[in-house]
Amino acid sequence: MLRKITLLAATLGLLLGAAAAPALANTAEEPANVHWDFEGPFGRYGKAENQAQLQRGYKVYREVCSSCHSMKLVSFRNLGDPGGPFWNPKYKNPNDNPVVKAIAADYQVDDIDTDTGDTTKRPGIPADRFPSPFANDYAAKASNGGANPPDMSLLARAREGQGRYIFSILMGYENPPAGVTLNPGQHYNKYMAGGVIAMPPPLKAGQVTYDDGTPSSLEQEAMDVSAFLMWAADPHADDRKNTGIAVLIYLLLFSGLLYLAYRQVWKNESH
């Protein structure tokens, strides 16, 4: 028995070491320790109040972030997928979802007139991806003081701290401490590695008027838009966790049966 415990402990130790090692690589200031209800093995984006948060977060993205940040990997139809901000069980096919259709139609997307070959604009459809605010990276840089606003599709998973990092950046603008001099177009943010960030403070209290009447404090806006970006970076999280619970229940039962079979086989053999 003691040997079995040692085996288990050694395996867990190896696993924890493996999991902790990349996390240790981060030396920037620790992001604020905030939590969202949809996190963890039992949290779901699909829960009513979490979906409401995603809708508020989308509004912040649409009205604030999207004027500089692209979200190239996300399609309008994703908004209506299960777990998405505008999922509606009445419209299993998100392309039929009227909210999604309206959001898409609100954007003008590039197209080519097949009769003339000229480039044209047309209203978006759910199958389109989110159009980018700038024609290319150089245009984005030129309009933003030389710094390219990162694409937001995967942003929440591309930073140590994930959603917590985004929330912290939005909340972390301060006057620079003594000894830090900022050039024009630079700002001080205590959660940014090095403290200097090119993005001006994007959010302030009351910046967005929420449709559901939630008071739009700065913290509320930061929480909501971080939630939306976490969903955008990991849109199948609900499906993943649901499948995971089923798989684990199956494997636990299966392991129990295999253990009984093993005991039965070895019943009369000493070892």
Binding site: A19, Q162, G244, L248, S255, Y259, Y262, W266
Partner: peptide, 28 residues
């Protein structure tokens, strides 16, 4: 019989990472 039981336990650990900690082993 013993290998099958051990494999099943290993798959449980595997599944925990696949479904609940997919980013734990990677780098942001």
């Amino acid at each position: 019989a013993k290998d099958a039981f051990a494999m099943s336990l290993f798959l449980i650990v595997f599944a925990v990472f696949v479904f609940f900690l997919p980013d734990a082993m990677g780098h942001a």
